[in-house]
Design a protein around this nucleic acid. Structure first.
Length: 470
RNA sequence: GCGCCCUUCGUCUAUCGGUUAGGACCCCAGAUUUUCAAUCUGGUAAGAGGGGUUCGACUCCCCUAGGGCGUGCCA
């Protein structure tokens, strides 16, 4: 918006796991706000936890964001690589007496925490006020922040409003571990500051940290960015979202057959709204998105609504793309499609796209297209094929053979007039035809089923059943 | 335990002191009908509880309850 003070948002995942749906929404909100304001959306990988961060997780996160279409500006920043910058900030704090070395550890540390808790305040190390000797400095130690003992710290959260915490509740947090690696709270503010981040939009599990970080910003004499703590996504039962709720990782949603644009639309509507608008384009989302319209309360993941949104985007999707995605679903199931099936799929997908809420359902609905001749007919469907019916189907075969335009509409008309000529209702024709053509698999309206299968396949499947007669 | 945050139909939400509290998903009924769907029409359903403030509260304040988060040499 303002060219003087361009907005910079960021997504800062830790590669200690995959990209979860909650993280994806956080990324989406950051992305949308950047787009809305004409600012930048940057990515930072917070890999200072050397034990648990993995290269594989970094790739999963990058792939997840890419799949979701949340493209970031510039190259991703890796936090661990910026250790020198973090230590420089600590040196400044040390020099100004705003940080101190601490040798508290083990049982002694645990006891100090218990004592602090009992006294009604956060941890203060006894080393805060002790003399530092050269001898001690040679021993392993951490660097702690010398936080204020009294007073309040107030943050002006764009979503949650003003939040005030008593400084006595905020501990002298560790800035540098004993191995010299910076901790989260320090690294975050140094990086956000140096990367020019203006708006920190993140999960509200960080709301308390915002106060600690504010104190650090102030100690370093840096401006405090705007904070926007969005609520987390809960499971359908209102509890913490977990595996038992069906899925967590973005990759799982992809495998379950959700379209990225559907997930974007759904996720955007979770905790944010623009009047009564439910389905909207990416451009509209960017135009409309404002942090001021983000809700405070947590939202639950609702599969029914996600399915509804997904069904909408499946219908909107390009035919070739859908056919390709259905092919991939079949491949994942270890049921690769042969050439003839692929050809039928690409030709028929336009007639099939309103029949599945997910790509997986769509693949199920397309299964009748992939049947190998002769089609195996289920017992129940088989019983429809009486002698009388087979004779009628033979006459229908002749009629169909003469159908010039093999379109759903003309086939419908052909079917109806055939029924009239035979002086029977469609109930005498549809079910048996379906049995012959699909073996009992789900299929669309008869006209569409015929159109989807194609003339030669339809006549072929009919012949498989009729020829033994002659 | 302590601290912080949250609370409108079952779910996602609109409402920014005065509305018959609106929309969407789900569900139900009807229409359509050659399977299963889809589609169309209609319907059920809400301000957690209790106190205030006010001529008037879903909307502002307080308390209670419930839920979430934090309280790490994780992020």
């Amino acid at each position: 918006m303002s060219s003087v003070n361009p907005v910079v948002t960021r997504f800062a995942p830790s590669p200690t796991g995959s990209l979860h749906i909650g993280g994806a929404r956080t990324a989406l909100f950051n992305y949308l706000y950047a787009k809305h304001t004409g600012g930048k959306f940057v990515l930072r990988i917070e890999d200072t936890d050397r034990e648990r961060s993995t290269e594989a997780n970094v790739q999963v996160i990058l792939d997840g964001l890419t799949w979701l279409g949340l493209t970031w500006d510039g190259e991703p920043t890796f936090q661990y690589a910026r250790g020198e910058r973090h230590r420089a900030a600590v040196d400044q704090l040390l020099a100004e007496g705003k940080a101190y070395p601490c040798w508290l550890a083990g049982d002694e540390l645990a006891a100090a925490k218990d004592a602090a808790r009992a006294a009604g305040h956060a941890l203060r190390s006894p080393w805060r006020d002790r003399e530092v000797t050269a001898e001690n400095l040679a021993r392993p130690h951490v660097i702690r922040f010398r936080g204020p003992l009294n007073g309040d710290t107030r943050i002006q959260d764009l979503v949650q409003g003003p939040v005030t915490l008593r400084n006595r509740e905020l501990d002298d947090l560790i800035l540098l571990r004993s191995d010299g690696v910076p901790t989260y709270n320090l690294a975050v503010i140094v990086d956000d500051h140096e990367m020019g981040v203006t708006h920190v939009i993140r999960g509200d599990d960080h709301l308390n940290n915002a106060a600690r970080q504010t104190l650090l910003y102030q100690a370093l004499g840096w401006p405090v960015p705007a904070f926007a703590h969005i609520s987390m996504i809960h499971g359908p039962d209102g509890g913490k979202l977990s595996k038992r709720h069906g899925a967590q990782a973005v990759g799982e949603f992809a495998d379950m057959g959700y379209l990225p644009e559907a997930l974007r639309n759904y996720l955007a509507r979770l905790g944010w709204s623009h009047g009564d608008d439910e389905l909207f384009s990416d451009q509209q989302a960017a135009d409309w998105f404002d942090i001021a319209d983000v809700n405070k309360g947590a939202a639950r993941l609702d599969w029914d609504k996600l399915n509804h949104v997904n069904a909408h985007y499946i219908r909107l999707a390009d035919d070739d793309r859908l056919a390709r995605l259905v092919t991939e679903v079949c491949l994942r199931r270890n049921e690769p499609l042969d050439e003839a099936s692929l050809q039928r799929l690409y030709g028929a997908i336009g007639l099939m796209k309103d029949r599945g809420k997910t790509l997986v359902e769509l693949a199920d609905q397309c299964a009748f297209l992939f049947l190998q001749r002769p089609v195996t007919i289920e017992e129940k469907a088989r019983s429809l094929l009486t002698a009388e019916t087979l004779e009628r189907l033979a006459r229908l075969r002749t009629a169909l053979d003469q159908e010039a335009s093999w379109s759903p509409e003309s086939l419908d008309i052909r079917l109806k007039s055939f029924a009239e000529a035979e002086a029977v209702g469609m109930g005498k024709i549809g079910p048996p035809m379906r049995a012959v053509l699909t073996g009992g698999q789900p299929s669309p309206d008869l006209g569409r089923t015929l159109a989807a299968l194609g003339r030669s396949e339809v006549l072929g499947r009919m012949d498989d059943v009729l020829s033994p007669l002659s």
